[in-house]
Design a protein around this nucleic acid. Sequence first.
RNA 1: GGGGUGGUAGUUCAGCUGGUUAGAACGCCGGCCUGUCACGUCGGAGGUCGCGGGUUCGAGUCCCGUCCACCCCGCCA
Length: 599
Amino acid sequence: MADALGELKRTHYCGALREGDVGRPVTLMGWAATRRYLGGVVFIDLRDREGICQVVARPEVSKEAHAAADRVRGEWVLAVVGEVAKRSADTVNVKIPTGAVEVLAREIRVLSEARTPPFPIEDEITTSEEIRLKYRYLDLRRPRMQRNIALRHRVTMEVRRYLDEQGFYEIETPFLTKSTPEGARDYLVPSRVHHGSFYALPQSPQIFKQILMVAGMDKYFQVARCFRDEDLRADRQPEFTQVDIEMSYPRVETIVDLIEPLYQRLVALVGVEVRRPFPRLTYAEAMERYGSDKPDLRFGMPITDVTDEMRTLGLDTFPGLISAGARARAIVLPASGGVSGTRLRKINEELWLGRIVADARASKRNLFSLKSTDEAVGNLARKGARESVARQMLDRAGAERDDTVLVAVDEPGPLAMALGILRLEMGRALGLVDEKAYRFVWVTHFPLFERDAAGHLQSVNHPFTAPLDEDLPLLESDPTRARAQAYDVVLNGTEAGGGSIRIHDSGLQAKVFRILSLSEEETRERFGFFIEALQYGTPPHGGIALGLDRIVMILAGESSLRDVIAFPKTASATDLMSGSPSPVRDDQIGDLGILVVRK
RNA sequence: GGGGUGGUAGUUCAGCUGGUUAGAACGCCGGCCUGUCACGUCGGAGGUCGCGGGUUCGAGUCCCGUCCACCCCGCCA
């Protein structure tokens, strides 16, 4: 039977006790992490949010406390009344912050007994995520998860503090809303009152935040939950949190100057200093040099163009490909990496034979490598290549002696993507990635539109993104070349945030809808209220959304979003603890005017 | 939608080319132990081999289907 809490009041956190507390009477509450029974004396490690401290129960101090301690099992909840005592020099535990002291128990109350947990409540566990998620309340008790959640709290609070200092209002927007133009599938909520009509959960508060600018709120932010019904990944959850920000009268520089200090402060929470300004790359530069619109700048290994060299090298296959529109680009594998030829070949084959770049239509035929040695160049010359061009290529790629230059030949799009992946894989394989670094970079000048598989123009970001002023003429003549006043913040190869200056002119907005082949009728149905709002005096405005889960994940050093979200979903969007989603009663479905089709 | 890996005790795993009673470690339960902190030590309990079907004298093992978890592609900022 459990004891009542009664008149007891906690005086300290277990993890907070230090030598300075010696002699103090304390009352602790917490979980029994471990129990060590030595016949006479019993040790209990008592754990709470702040840490662990050792409780000693001796029969000569209190017979009752000793008997209670004897009965205690793992994860029982205890109240311990006692006194902080200094440990003798030979019994100090240097592994824990409270290791210099212990609490002599005068009274131990069992507030709650506990079933044996399915896995130990400690940091280094091998338990499957399936079990961890099912017993999430136990998983969250582990110190590491407690740290992650605490860090998330501090990040969120720092965001609020900073944006408040900058004069932003925190404003909530609805969850039950209308489908927004983000392009992902919506989570839908059927209306009971209006059969056949549905709310959509917001993919982001995009339209609402713009309307708040029309409404004169001037500076808005929100720690906003967003919902997207798409397939998941380690860094993608069906519901996730964005720090959503919008302001009136900004230029791109205004947003940059707002966001960089914020990231500085967030990174400072884990004791890291990053310098401003963050480097910048245009989208075109990022694709050209890193093969990605979210380049990982924790290592070098830039991509270089060696098309001219490959064309004139004098080998058979490549000139044909190149005159057909392909380019040749290279990365350099440093000799210091010490990667064997076999290893290299294996990584290449995995990469190129469909595993990763299936879309790139690449094959071994499109690959070429050359070691930067006289011997390798000589061998190549014997096969008919022009030696001077080979040397020029090594030079152009930036190869030092004994480095290996890896050249791929393909059309620019697939080539950039494939080399980007290759660069990442090689960087990792060669251990070039500085795991402790925080490398921010802005990527700007994104294209405004792209063509989908069917060849239709689509917004790269969303249809409210403003074009660059200088590219306005391109909207009519060559829309895919028009660039946007859009920007992403990239951190260590992860997209940490993105935004744009918006269109505030309803005429320009209408033109963009026309380019996207949205009929006036469709536009009116989907965004009519928004277009109307724009006609009532819209200040120029723009903003950004920062992925809160991702920044916390990176700051916490975790590799899965699930480790920084208290109650995350599995890769198939289920909650293993509560068992959602789940069937509902027929009458609930009936109320909604919905017919369920069973497969 | 596609590909990959995995599913055997509470947990993590082993279990070969099908063949006696399915094992180990940790955890759990009991005994002993007054300075442990991964306590030690002696003993014990614990199994729908994910689920359904099939092949076979015989299936944890082979075949088919299905479910679940994780990773990746598509998709998604």
